[in-house]
């Protein structure tokens, strides 16, 4: 793997994890209301914009990445992101993890890694 591919990969992990946690923070803020009012309330808070900013960065990084590697190999990225988001969700949102739920998440992460390595 060339340096530029590694840098794009690392940038994707950081942007993806930060973005997902920002979106979760935006979606569970207190007193959001329902329907359109919910979206207006989310727009008044910073979290959805921080998440959207991270997503725009990720969009550019992903396009550049796909120009350098085949689509099937690009999914190798996802395996690390899944574990990063799981750990962050547990630390920041006190999400509970039954053994079955943890097993499910790790199976998905392993599956994504196997798909990527095989690509």
């Amino acid at each position: 793997m060339s340096t530029i591919i590694v840098l794009l990969w690392l940038a994707n992990i950081v942007l993806d994890t930060f973005g997902q946690l920002s979106f979760k923070a935006a979606a569970v803020a207190p007193d959001l209301g329902e329907g359109l009012a919910r979206w207006r309330a989310m727009a008044r808070r910073p979290w959805i914009w921080l998440g959207a900013g991270a997503y725009i960065g990720e969009f550019v990084v992903w396009l550049a990445f796909l120009s350098l590697v085949p689509l099937s190999q690009g999914v190798l990225l996802g395996s690390i992101n899944i574990v990063a988001v799981m750990v962050a969700g547990r630390m920041l949102f006190a999400e509970k993890f039954s053994p079955l739920r943890t097993l499910g998440i790790l199976l998905v992460a392993c599956g994504v890694a196997v798909v990527g390595i095989g690509g």
Binding site: S72, L100, I105, L107, V108, C110, G111, V115, G118, G119
Partner: peptide
């Protein structure tokens, strides 16, 4: 084969999540 094995693992993981 790796893509097929990986796909099976992903689906198995999602089944675990659905059951949980």
């Amino acid at each position: 084969a790796p893509q097929l094995i990986g796909s099976v693992l992903i689906i198995a993981g999602i089944v675990c999540l659905a059951i949980s």
